[in-house]
């Protein structure tokens, strides 16, 4: 925690000269520090050497401890311990290849698909280890939905795309019930108004942003508890991106969301919690405001200031 002394939370005049010079090269960090110092009421307590916040963390839904992931001989993740709180957006950030997507895919066991992948450690969903022998992956994935980097609507109609999950899981007893699940999901994904007249059109006929919202509708039609999003906006234009971001902000009231993003601005805009990954290690985690304004670790600071990444 020695590095904490480098963090310019003190008034500038009190900082050692070297630290000041360092800080001046990084106006972004300085600015946000000032902002946080102004806004947060507990800014005094955050000066304590171990700034683990307790205030904003709700009930913990998922928890990984000492998670190690190997692809063949190469280790992709090292001892990751992280908690995912309920009804919040947790953003995973870091340079590409840092393991954030790998981590996300551990949460619904999507890594099982890859032959050479080996997962060690524990991943708990409410106290139950999801890698436990009695766990049914199919059921797990019904509880933890996922949205991918590139919109991947099935080559089916819009309706069938959304109805796919409820159908395989048998969630609707009647045609009417299925209809209503599809409508609700499309509405929740803010897509209904745009497609209500062409539910039988192929899902691939939609624009990129619409396709991604279709994929979100498809995921929430199964009524998951947690939604994982793997860079959901990276293939979209800015307008579509802001639509999805607004949607994510809406969804967090009903769902717990974990989102991988390479865009720090996006993490800052939509997430409440941020975890910074670097070369397979979890470097820093905390409230988004805190991580962006007052990173503890120099690597986080470098990334946020744009020096790496």
């Amino acid at each position: 925690m020695d590095c904490m002394t480098m963090t310019p939370t003190k008034p500038l005049s009190e900082l050692p000269l070297a630290a000041l010079q360092f800080a001046q090269q990084k106006p972004f960090v300085l600015q946000s520090t000032e902002r946080e110092a102004d806004m947060t009421t507990d800014s005094v307590s955050s000066r304590s050497p171990a700034p683990v916040e307790v205030t904003s963390v709700g009930r913990i839904r998922m928890q990984t401890s000492d998670l190690n992931v190997h692809y063949g001989d190469t280790q992709a993740l090292h001892d990751i311990s992280l908690e995912i709180p309920e009804n919040q957006v947790t953003a995973l950030i870091g340079p590409s290849g840092c393991g954030k997507s790998t981590y996300l895919r551990c949460l619904n066991r999507m890594n099982d698909v890859i032959d050479s992948c080996r997962v060690e450690g524990s991943v708990k969903l409410d106290d139950a280890d999801i890698y436990g022998p009695e766990v049914d992956v199919v059921e797990l994935r019904a509880r933890i939905g996922m949205v991918f980097q590139k919109p991947n609507p099935f080559p089916k109609s819009i309706y069938d795309n959304v109805a796919y999950g409820p159908r395989i899981h048998g969630l609707a007893d009647s045609r009417e019930e299925l209809d209503s699940i599809v409508m609700e999901s499309l509405e929740q994904a803010r897509l209904f108004d745009e497609v209500k007249d062409r539910l039988q059109a192929p899902g691939t006929s939609l624009s990129g942003g619409q396709q991604q919202r279709l994929c979100i509708a498809r995921a929430i039609a199964v009524k998951p508890e947690i939604i994982l999003m793997d860079e959901p906006c990276s293939a979209l234009d800015p307008i579509a991106t802001s639509g999805i971001e607004a949607l994510i902000d809406d969804l967090k009231d009903a769902y717990t969301i974990v989102m991988v993003t390479h865009s720090m601005q996006q993490a800052a805009r939509v997430s409440q919690r941020t975890a910074y990954f670097h070369m397979g290690q979890l470097v820093e985690t905390g409230s988004t405001d805190k991580v962006f304004s007052d990173p503890r670790d120099p690597r986080t600071r470098d990334y946020i200031s744009g020096r790496i990444g």
Binding site: D136, V138, E139, A142, H169, G170, L171, K223
Partner: peptide, 9 residues
Amino acid sequence: LSTKLAARL
């Protein structure tokens, strides 16, 4: 929902 799901599983 979870009972429905389990029955089909």
